[in-house]
Simulated assay, not measured.
Amino acid sequence: MREPSAYGFARASWEINLGCKFACKHCYLGLKEFAGLAWDDKVRLLEIMRDAGVLWLQITGGEPTIDKHFPDAYRYAASLGMMLTVSTNASRLWETSLLAMFEECPAYRLVVSVYGATEASFDGLTQRRGSWKTFQRGMAAAREARLPVRLNIVVTEDSAHEIDAMAAMAEDWGLRHHIYTNMTPTIYGGPESLLAQSSKHLRERTPFAGCNAGHTFFHADPHAKVSICKVGRDDQIDLMAEGLEGLRRLPGVADKLMLRTGGCSGCQLSGSCLVCRPLAKQFQEARAPLQNYCQHGQLRKETVNA
């Protein structure tokens, strides 16, 4: 039994590192430098998450499974009573040590990204020769072990012609899948990830209706710098310096970041904007087309089509 927390954060995500063996063209992380906390600080971070009330934890990266502390961190989080989701490219799911770990401490879900249905398109998007083969090897092992895998099918210019083939692959494997088409700028506001986007397959966004980021959810980067989410990384709180009490400031940070400022201040359509303010800021910094994120872009599109 876990004691109730006065902080009210039920969910969190944690980039255990930013390192990855792939160099995907669409990756929102931009520079993927391998860096993170020492083991003792990882333990402290997880204990702060527990004390904050976190029951659902997503461990991500980069590629989390290449972190030398990943198995121990995963097991320790599980021992603290957390239900765990791991976001991975499946390139190491064939390793016996990882398979044994997932058998000993079952994950709630493994979310695996799919970058193509053929070796050419998969390796083309990841910009790493052999990535298709390691993906297939990992997926074969995961299916044999009956791991709780869900697939994220990533549609880019490299793989758009294989949407049906990727969906068919998921169905043949008997796995649930989600088709992901809308790319975002990098966390630094860079446009390079948008260049991989297939403009023909952009999904119509629904108006942003609010979220609990910073109130019941938070995100921790590899250095335990906490933000309201993966997108809104301004005004981060250093948990290694401030400890658990630092999280009391996060709701105020969230409310501040959600205000319509900069290019959105005074906009009469902001109440029905297609994205949250932190994401709109990234699109603006990347000088992305309005139709990617703004109601004005939708109006312009409708006018052109009329």
Rank of each mutant, 00 (worst) to 15 (best):
C276P: 00
H177E: 00
G246P: 07
P251R: 10
G271H: 01
L279C: 10
D158S: 12
R277V: 11
L244K: 07
P278K: 02
R150G: 04
P251T: 08
R249C: 04
N182K: 11
S265M: 09
F217E: 04
S198C: 15
A142Y: 05
P222C: 06
S227M: 06
S159N: 06
R203D: 08
E242W: 10
R248Q: 15
S159V: 03
G263L: 12
F217S: 01
D158R: 08
R233Y: 08
G174Q: 07
I237Q: 05
P148C: 05
N152M: 07
M169Q: 14
S198V: 06
R233V: 10
R150N: 12
A196S: 13
H178D: 08
A168I: 00
E204H: 09
A168W: 08
I187T: 06
R277N: 12
R205A: 08
A213T: 05
T186H: 06
G262T: 02
D172S: 15
R205Q: 09
V275D: 00
V253H: 01
R143N: 12
T206C: 05
R203E: 15
S265I: 09
M166V: 11
S193I: 07
C273S: 05
K230V: 11
G174R: 08
L202T: 10
L194W: 00
V275K: 04
D255L: 11
S227A: 15
G210N: 06
G190Q: 04
G214E: 01
R277A: 10
R205C: 00
A170Q: 02
E157Y: 07
V226K: 04
G271K: 00
R248T: 14
N182S: 07
